[in-house]
Design a protein around this nucleic acid. Sequence first.
DNA 1: TTGACGAATCAATATTTGTTGATATATCAT
DNA 2: ATGATATATCAACAAATATTGATTCGTCAA
Lengths: 106, 106
Amino acid sequence: MKDGMLINPVRAVELFHALADQTRLQILDELKGGERCVCELMDCLEAGQSRLSFHLKVLKDAGMIVDRREGRWMYYAVNTEAFAELDALVDSFTHTKRTSRAPTRC
Amino acid sequence: MKDGMLINPVRAVELFHALADQTRLQILDELKGGERCVCELMDCLEAGQSRLSFHLKVLKDAGMIVDRREGRWMYYAVNTEAFAELDALVDSFTHTKRTSRAPTRC
DNA sequence: TTGACGAATCAATATTTGTTGATATATCAT
DNA sequence: ATGATATATCAACAAATATTGATTCGTCAA
């Protein structure tokens, strides 16, 4: 990711929110092993189709995953760029040192 | 953070959830400049006392910030360790390569 | 073209999260 | 002790998010 590029707070919230859920983390964890179709995710996560679809949409809207149709199947895969973005975001949090001023009491 | 140490999913959700809110990100951003008392945060975030207290608790429960009493004032500051943990967590996401197997169709 | 299948979307509902104003608690100054 | 101040907590409510089952849509096979 471009250095010095600021990620706006709205985007940051969207990213973190997408990750702030057990099911979605499981999905991402599974997708780390390569692309998967929905039915396979249903299997290994033991989640209903509708529920899964919902969470996949959240992840997709946040840009964390990408999809690809192949016939009747939809394949999902992690979007590497988004992870780089996340990495940069966390780094900017961790490393951005501001001129530390003393607290001003009320 | 210890290498190879796995962060459990529940903890990951807690961390990301704590960050998935505009107000809480603002708080952290402010605290990057050094420790602050609540009244000062109220000022610069233009947030009510009760609301702020709520979000500070979320951040504190997640271990993102620490507090310190000084007389009537409570001072909050970022907890560096938690940020290291976050960093490690994101890294583990980004870099953990699993043996990529082909997707198994239904 | 019809039927079956994989997946998205919708509507209803449940659950969780956030906000607000009121009250409680702790500490200080008098 | 009393009152003032800083903050936490609580209760009521509002808003956002997640779950479920039903329906719809797109694609394929016969």
